[in-house]
Write a protein that binds this DNA or RNA. Structure first.
Lengths: 140, 140
DNA sequence: ATTATTTTGCAACAAAGTTGCATCTGTTTA
DNA sequence: TAAACAGATGCAACTTTGTTGCAAAATAAT
């Protein structure tokens, strides 16, 4: 885990600092998306709010994480898979929000469908947000 | 136009007030989505910020407008078509954001695709956000 | 026209996000 | 390994966005 974090930072030519390591660890531990507030709480408010914002911004620019559009318009961040980097920024994504437990995740293996747009429209990116019940919540 | 506005308000059992009329007119005039800021500006700051928020909230509850999730997490509002009302709240929507002119619109005639979710997942709602160039911007 | 009900604007507040700057930490080089 | 440099951090102050309670004003009902 420690190594994975360092690898990612080095690969992206980022210096290895406390906040970056800690925040990246959070993303790796938890399969799912995190809000800015979550991150502050789960780092034990060890880092300044500003630092968290700036760290997330850096990760966004490097393509390490990406944002997820939500219907309630809170900002969520999620780890990107390997095929995303600077330049190639998540052309297509399917995100799932569980109405029960609130978990938001990126369904990487689900392919984004082709959408027939009206005449004259050209698309560059498609994001899909699915609401429903996740695997865990459906057990009960 | 005046009539259309009054009709909508009456149909939803809302009293006819300055801000409601003006804001509804904005939505009817403009085919596309509006941010809260847009609305304030285009009403000439005639109404208090709070009033605008509350008016939008009322329209949302009544199903007159709906919000659109955007990748940059700004809140956008758009008019609903007739088949949306209290209770039946936009289960499926395709929204288009033009990267050129920034216009965001609701593509009502585009059908939302079926998405195969992983085992155990159940969906209740699907929102699709498409980025690209709109009809108008593609002319040049 | 008068009353009852809603809606509005104001003030104050809370949350979310940004900026500039001095200080500190990580990295590089000798 | 120590000095020097570049970059990251924390603090303070500020802006933007959104919320709440309450008195005044506008709308609807009688």
């Amino acid at each position: 885990m420690q190594e994975a974090v360092q690898d990612i930072l080095k690969k992206n030519q980022l210096s290895i600092t406390g906040s970056r390591v800690k925040i990246l660890e959070l993303f790796l531990e938890q399969q799912g998306a995190l809000a800015h507030g979550d991150i502050e709480r789960r780092t034990g408010e060890k880092f300044d709010r500003v630092t968290v914002y700036r760290t997330l911004q850096v990760f966004l620019n490097k393509g390490i994480i990406h944002t997820i559009p939500t219907s309630d318009n809170s900002v969520l961040y999620a780890l990107c898979k390997d095929d995303c980097g600077e330049g190639h920024h998540h052309d297509n994504h399917v995100h799932f929000v569980c109405d029960d437990c609130g978990t938001t995740m990126c369904l990487d293996d689900v392919t984004v469908p082709v959408i027939r747009l009206p005449k004259g429209f050209k698309f560059t990116q498609i994001q899909v947000v699915v609401n429903g019940r996740c695997k865990d919540c459906n057990r009960d």
